[in-house]
Amino acid sequence: MEYNITPSYNEEENVWFVTLVGEFDIFNAAELKAKLNDLVAEKQINLVLECSNLVFIDSTVLGNLVAVLKNVKAYDGKISLKNLRPNVSKIFKITNLNKIFVIDGEGEANE
């Protein structure tokens, strides 16, 4: 299963920009969580996940993203997901997590 997590710091917007490529499931969910948590520990800024080549996620990944979001919210930050594919977007919708993550600029986390 090929996958890639590529972080970069966007100085202009002062955000972590993370490109996710491939499939993420129970196998690599912990790795993704650890890398995202490392980023927010280094700089307490917003996270932007670029998902145009993210082809699959499961509930384990979702749960881990929620855990990272908890850390991000501790400093009033946000996690945005950009360019979700329809099948991935569907997963966020059926779990109602589209209401707590900022997805493609639409919707805001419920306070």
Partner: peptide, 11 residues
Amino acid sequence: DDMGLAMIQAL
């Protein structure tokens, strides 16, 4: 209340 279970039931 397992999230995976909820997804299975939805799909």
